[in-house]
């Protein structure tokens, strides 16, 4: 079995990464998972979190929110609504996004409230990785 897989990370506005990877750590909606070559075909939605890649070309980390990941035996593609390399992710961006999600919580219908506030919590948890 090949020891690397194709990794793609795209957001609606640009393609952030496309290279070979040994493993990809993905923040799935129902828990983190790590995709490695030969993984069973799998599709999951994402929660806001940090995505880590390691491969022959070194390591990378991205902050992703919203979207989904499609994993097959040969490739992992992540389509994220917002994605930033961790180095570009600042407190200001985070604050903006948290504020936006807070208003989303307020506007959300009652049954969706819990889920929306969970997203805010996920966002807040990202503070630890923010580069000062």
């Amino acid at each position: 079995m090949a020891d690397t897989m194709q990794f793609d990370l795209v957001s609606p506005e640009r393609k952030l990464a496309s290279h070979a990877a040994r493993e990809v750590q993905i923040p799935g909606a129902e828990g983190d998972l790590t995709a490695m070559p030969g993984h069973a075909p799998f599709i999951t939605t994402l929660r806001p979190g940090v995505l880590k890649v390691s491969g022959p070309e070194g390591e990378g980390a991205f902050v992703v929110t919203g979207g989904f990941a499609e994993i097959t035996a040969e490739a992992a593609s992540v389509l994220a609504e917002h994605a930033f390399p961790v180095a570009e992710f600042t407190t200001a961006t985070l604050d903006d996004m948290v504020a936006e999600m807070r208003t989303a919580v307020e506007n959300a219908p009652a049954e969706a409230k819990a889920e929306a506030s969970k997203r805010v919590a996920d966002m807040e948890a990202l503070r630890s990785v923010v580069s000062a």
Binding site: P12, A29, E30, A40, P41, F42, I43, T44, T45, E70
Partner: peptide, 23 residues
Amino acid sequence: PLYEYEPSEEGILEDLLPRGVAT
């Protein structure tokens, strides 16, 4: 290929369809 889904197929679709419209 036969994918496994997390959450369910309907759950993912419900999440993706609005995004599809935006896209």
